[in-house]
Structure formats: structure tokens, C-alpha cells
């Protein structure tokens, strides 16, 4: 999934203009891939402690690209929504399995939930379309 932020602080996901509040749901759908859509990353079976064998989207990548003129707050907003997406997915699993929020789990259980939803965010070198440094 390619997330672009331009120098006017606008966000595009896979070429489609997206509002800040829409980002989280798009990202969750991408990672979760509930209907095993062919166009979304494939899930592979992974043996996870406490859970046994789970289908994990291990090979998904979210690529984040800014412009040199993008405002820091816009970047933080996008990072915030990405973090929120992972946090919500992890919280969901954590409550269903352990009855507690992800943040309230002990280290081993947290690591297990992290294995189910690993964070795969890659940041690219910013472009300089504006022409000025």
C-alpha cells in the first residue's frame, strides 16, 4: 500500500485522494484482508505462542512517501493513523483472546499479538517536486 503526502499536506493512498479520517479504515482493511482478496497481501500460516497456527499477513508493506515541503504535523497525522490502525487490530485480538487491552498484556503476550499483526512500514526518501529545499 503506497501512502503519499504532497507539499500541500494532502494524502493519497494507492493513487486515490484520502481524507485523514479515512486512512485508518483503509489500512486496517489492507492488513486484515478478511475476505482473502487476491489483490491484497497474501496471508501465510505462522505458529504463534498462545494462539497456535494463525494466518498472518507477514509480507504486507505500507510504503510512506513525503515531499520535502510536507508539514511535520501532516506526517505525524498519517503516522498517527497508521499506529491507530495497528493498535486497533491488536486490541481486538487481545480482547477476544485474553480479555484485556493490548497495552495491558504482559511482554510475552504482547509479542505474540505483535506477531499476528507485525508493523511493516517503510519510509521512502522524500521527493522534491516544489523545487526549493
Amino acid at each position: 500500500m503506497v501512502v503519499l503526502i504532497n507539499s500541500s499536506n494532502q494524502v493519497a493512498i494507492n493513487g486515490e485522494y484520502t481524507e485523514i479520517r479515512q486512512i485508518k479504515d483503509k489500512v486496517k482493511e489492507f492488513i486484515e484482508n478478511p475476505y482473502n482478496d487476491e489483490h491484497k497481501p497474501e496471508k501465510v500460516p505462522v505458529d504463534v505462542p498462545f494462539f497456535g497456527e494463525m494466518m498472518v499477513s507477514k509480507n504486507h508493506v505500507i510504503s510512506l512517501q513525503n515531499d520535502r515541503g510536507t508539514e511535520y504535523q501532516a506526517y505525524i497525522n498519517v503516522q498517527n493513523e497508521l499506529a491507530a490502525a495497528y493498535n486497533e487490530l491488536r486490541d481486538d485480538v487481545s480482547r477476544k483472546k485474553f480479555g484485556k487491552a493490548f497495552a495491558d498484556l504482559d511482554e510475552d503476550r504482547q509479542r505474540a499479538v505483535q506477531d499476528i499483526y507485525p508493523q511493516k512500514i517503510s519510509e521512502a526518501e522524500p521527493k522534491n517536486y516544489g523545487g526549493n529545499k
Binding site: 503526502i5 513525503n66 515531499d67 520535502r68 515541503g69 510536507t70 508539514e71 511535520y72 504535523q73 506526517y75 505525524i76 526518501e125 522524500p126 522534491n128 529545499k133
Partner: peptide, 12 residues
């Protein structure tokens, strides 16, 4: 700790 209006060029 960067000011919220900092440009990403500097951050990068």
C-alpha cells in the same frame, strides 16, 4: 522535538 510546522525536508 520538532515544531509542528517544520518541513519534512529538515526532518529527513
Amino acid at each position: 522535538k520538532a515544531d509542528k510546522e517544520t518541513k519534512m525536508g529538515t526532518i529527513t
